[in-house]
Design a protein around this nucleic acid. Structure first.
Lengths: 345, 345
DNA sequence: CTGAAAGCGCTTACAG
DNA sequence: CTGAAAGCGCTTACAG
């Protein structure tokens, strides 16, 4: 394939002049320009190859997003909460005119090592093994929902505060008997953690979910309730069985605390299936807000997990460069129709 | 910053050997290898720069998606139908281990000309002006939902057939009085195209929507109905006013044909607001299927627009390379709760 | 197992 | 307005 230099030779000019014909046409006398253009046509030369330009300029005009490990590109787009993080990043891309590159996990951090981008955003909680290769690239990057220490930019949501607000709302409504749906960040079957049996921190899920657990625990303690005595089901957000499991495990609960939004919606649906009225017989709160939470019947009272803002903040941090910064976003509780006063006993 | 050659010099070896230390460590005697590694450490060299490798290898391991013009990255992710196309592409990326690059429209086709990718997918109907620069890149690419002629790979859905099935379903249920909600692919206010007034093809929307219109027209004609006598509202899918407009414009309609899915859902909601029961008083069909269509009450009978499959097929075409191919996917009608027999007069 | 050489394709300051 | 030169950083066949 013809290169710029071939065109230059054919037209009898130097490479610089040929380059200018394509990049700064005004700088080249029309006659000469036409000669170069004709030579390009003859040789089938289609304009400068971005590869060459790239090597020279060193700027990619793109930002990479590394989704949670094992998710892949498709799953990142499908997950309604994660796709909000992507949207937030996308908004900033649109502002600065950058491309968004989704880079799935690959063996040996191949993606990170070779990504043709100007910066990274890690949406993978806790993958220190990936942060090191990213650092080696000497590119700006930020992590989301994970505390990587003071030297790495991060954006986090105060999940404890969000969960606290949700649980506090329920105790304020007089609820005293609860069930919890926690997070399983992999696709193994839902698991019951019965009341009174000691549970490891991981029973709640990832560190973020463990913070939610602490938030629940705090609010409940303030109402004199020991969270250890509340049955908990740990499940993948898409697991269809979790809602039934928690209602079975906590048959006299008047309120369900869900660490995810899909499971919160699923509990509402399962309650209806069982002839329970939400919120008259049962109150349900979720965590994170997606369009379905508004559309379901009744609309789900939930915590706005600020996912879009999270993505936006992380992208801004990366595009801004500079020294590491740490942002903590405080979530809001959104009161909708799925919560009400505890039923009289 | 240190380069490979600096490390090689410092270690007293050739560039090739230094390169091998990083890329084929087994090929280098341990002692020598350690010397190179030490030199790298001393110089703060962090491994081969992907830019250089790239220029050499010429493979990006990435596919570009060009969303509909003027959408930007964020909007592409937010749109529930388009994000399905992205998911389909993402699935193929995951299969072949490629990155997904979302490239928004930029002046002078800058994105296309400089994209560091191995191929393109155009999700922009009708932008011939963008197809030319893509062709200049001599990279494989495919277009979605648009007929670019025989020389360019394309994936299309037979929208006419889908719309025909939807309308046929309704005439089969005895409906004779309709309203149509068509597509406006920009954010200007909804527009009423009253019955009996001649309408240009663009009243339906983009070419794809015009095909839907033809599908409706055909099915209706088979029931002896002239589509020209059916009021139509043309609106952006998010336009909150369209549902009310069409119910006002077609007050005696027993069925609404919507070319989009969000508007179909909106019509159901507006009907409820007006005290009309769906489907007893009013049947509603949409086009395209998203989770909300299943979740709404009653669930929306709609056409599965095969968006995921569309994305998947386009990505496969691009990754396969080879001569242009043209795929046409036939959509399915999905019968759910929003359609029923026409009410007796 | 190691080294010298060629090549990937382009742009930009600089001198004229 | 135009050209000669330097540089962006790396890899791979080839010869030894």
């Amino acid at each position: 394939m013809a290169r710029l230099i071939d065109v230059a030779k054919a037209a009898g000019v130097s490479r610089s002049t040929a380059s200018n014909v394509f990049n700064n046409p005004d700088m080249v006398r029309p006659k000469l320009r036409q000669r170069v253009e004709a030579a390009a046509r003859d040789l089938g030369y289609l304009g400068p190859d971005p590869k060459g330009r790239l090597l020279r300029d060193g700027k990619f005009n793109a930002i990479a997003v590394l989704p949670p490990s094992s998710w892949g590109v498709a799953e990142s787009l499908r997950n309604p909460v994660y796709s909000q993080v992507l949207m937030g990043i996308g908004e900033v891309c649109d502002e600065v005119g950058a491309n968004l590159v989704v880079i799935p996990d690959r063996p040996d951090n191949h993606g990170i090592k070779n990504a043709l981008v100007d910066g990274f955003i890690f949406g993978r909680a806790g993958h220190l093994s990936e942060i090191e290769p990213a650092r080696l690239r000497r590119l700006p990057f930020a992590v989301v929902d994970f505390d990587p220490g003071p030297n790495i930019s991060s954006v986090r949501v105060d999940a404890r505060a969000g969960a606290y607000a949700a649980a506090k709302h329920l105790t304020g409504l007089g609820h005293r008997r609860f069930g919890i749906v926690s997070f399983m960040r992999s696709s193994i079957p839902a698991q019951l953690h019965p009341a009174g049996v000691p549970r490891p921190a991981e029973a709640a899920g990832m560190p973020t979910d463990q913070e939610k657990y602490r938030g629940y625990a705090e609010a409940l303690a303030e109402a004199g309730i020991d969270i250890a005595n509340i049955p908990m089901v740990q499940a993948d957000p898409w697991d269809g069985k979790a809602a039934a499991m928690i209602l079975d495990a906590a048959p006299d609960a008047t309120a369900i605390l869900s660490m995810g939004v899909q499971q919160g919606i699923a509990v509402i649906e399962e309650a209806r299936r069982r002839g329970k009225s939400v919120p008259r017989d049962l109150s349900v709160v979720g965590y994170n807000d997606i369009p379905d939470a508004l559309r379901c019947d009744p609309p789900l009272s939930t915590v706005d997990g600020m996912s879009i803002q999270k993505g936006r903040a992380a992208a801004r941090l990366v595009f801004a460069g500079g020294p590491p910064r740490h942002e903590i976003i405080t979530p809001n509780f959104i009161l909708r129709g799925s919560t009400g006063p505890a039923p009289a006993d």
